[in-house]
């Protein structure tokens, strides 16, 4: 599936939840619970994403021109948010990640659900994921 197809899938899932804020938050937390485990040693100061109020750790690795992300957070809602980003971006080429326009965030009304502070945190996560992609692309082109 393409990045856009996965985004559409997420939009459909959130549409089923409707306007009920509580069930939406429960759903995001549930998604967080399914995030693959991140090795404890990777939860280090240098892997913390700056700009998030809760703690978020992110690492990236590259194989066969695809970037794989691992992430964790100390709050379940944040874990759920980053699991959505990983579902969309992990396993893609640096070029795809750099070009990706993540319109699902706006389309599911995430800003209203999580509020402005967490929206800033979410933007910081996306920025860090794209920065990894830019760095790997530079490395691949070198």
């Amino acid at each position: 599936m393409s990045i856009q197809e996965i985004q559409n899938e997420i939009i459909d899932e959130f549409q089923i939840l409707g306007d009920d804020r509580e069930s939406t938050i429960f759903y995001i937390m549930e998604l967080g619970g399914k995030l693959p485990e991140m090795p404890e040693e990777d939860k280090s100061e240098e892997n913390i994403i700056k700009g998030c109020q809760s703690k978020v750790w992110l690492t990236a690795s590259e194989s066969n021109n695809k970037i794989n992300y691992l992430a964790d957070s100390n709050t379940d809602i944040t874990k759920g948010l980053i699991s959505l980003l990983i579902r969309v971006l992990s396993g893609r080429s640096p070029e795809e990640i750099i070009k990706a326009e993540l319109d699902f965030i706006e389309k599911i009304g995430m800003g209203n659900i999580i509020g402005s502070q967490r929206s800033n945190g979410l933007a910081a996560m996306i920025k860090q994921m794209k920065l990894y992609a830019i760095a790997y692309q530079a490395k691949l082109n070198a």
Binding site: R21, I25, S54, T75, D76, I77, T78, I114
Partner: peptide, 21 residues
């Protein structure tokens, strides 16, 4: 087992304003 931010956000979904942090 829960982070105060998450608890606060779920209370807010129920119309309850508390402070977290």
């Amino acid at each position: 087992g829960m982070h105060p931010f998450d608890v606060g956000m779920m209370l807010d979904a129920n119309g309850i304003a508390v402070r977290t942090g």
